[in-house]
Design a protein around this nucleic acid. Structure first.
Lengths: 134, 134
DNA sequence: TATTGTTATACTCTATAACTATA
DNA sequence: TATAGTTATAGAGTATAACAATA
């Protein structure tokens, strides 16, 4: 049940992302960079469950559009320091707000108790899954 | 959160499926055929959210291994009637039991209330998503 | 020697279009 | 003409291997 539900949620998000000019991976990267500062591209890839080779074109594009900054670390010139720009934060916030409105819409089908249980359960299972995958 | 959780669950299931000699699509087909008899391959593909072209090699393989029966409908010889064999039902039941044990394991991280809410919410949202995708 | 980032390549999965046989 | 099933092909997404720069 979970996988098809995920697909359905993604299908809802795609038009929203497109309106904001973002691909799914670009949106995931903006979210990850906003939540916790990430020092290396490998760590970022790990954090979002992507391959390090796969996010490179994503970072290239985000940098080109000035949504992220990516500069070499002076103390270890192999690593690139990644951070959101003001524009990047703005786009991320606007996009996330719109997506959350859609999610609220879906959650209206649940009673308050179901809703609380569902969200709590989801967070716990999600965190446990993240731990297990390391 | 849902998509990565789904990936993690699938990652758990794959070794189980492999032990029973099933691919993910083969398992999904066996489950669908067990739950409701399906008259046409197109309807089956729709029911499991797959393309009708994609399940053909799956059906070929399941038929070759005598896990399903697939015979032409005499009243409309364009359609193939699909059904589970006794072997197919056996494999499906054994595999599902093992997968559900793994899921029980995960759900142990939840309190009884969270668990009830999570499962109820999941069913409701999943059904709503299935309806919306038609 | 090990690690970060990168590029090129191969592989898998999925979607599209075209064909056949029946209706 | 329309539909069920099939085949072949192209495309997207993903993973693997090899490389340059730096430690």
């Amino acid at each position: 049940m979970i996988v098809p539900l995920g697909k359905s949620l993604v299908a809802d998000e795609l038009p929203i992302l497109e309106r904001h000019g973002l691909s799914m991976w670009e949106y995931v990267v903006l979210n990850a960079l906003d939540e916790r500062p990430t020092r290396t591209q490998s760590a970022l890839a790990d954090a979002i469950g992507a391959d390090k080779t796969r996010i490179i074109p994503v970072l290239d594009e985000l940098q080109r559009r000035r949504l992220i900054k990516r500069r070499p670390d002076e103390s270890d010139r192999r690593v690139r320091l990644l951070s959101l720009t003001a524009d990047g934060l703005r786009v991320r916030t606007a996009t996330q707000a719109e997506i959350q409105r859609g999610e609220e819409e879906r959650l209206r089908a649940l009673t308050p108790t179901q809703r609380r249980g569902f969200l709590a359960g989801l967070q716990i299972l999600s965190a446990a899954a993240g731990d297990a995958d390391r």
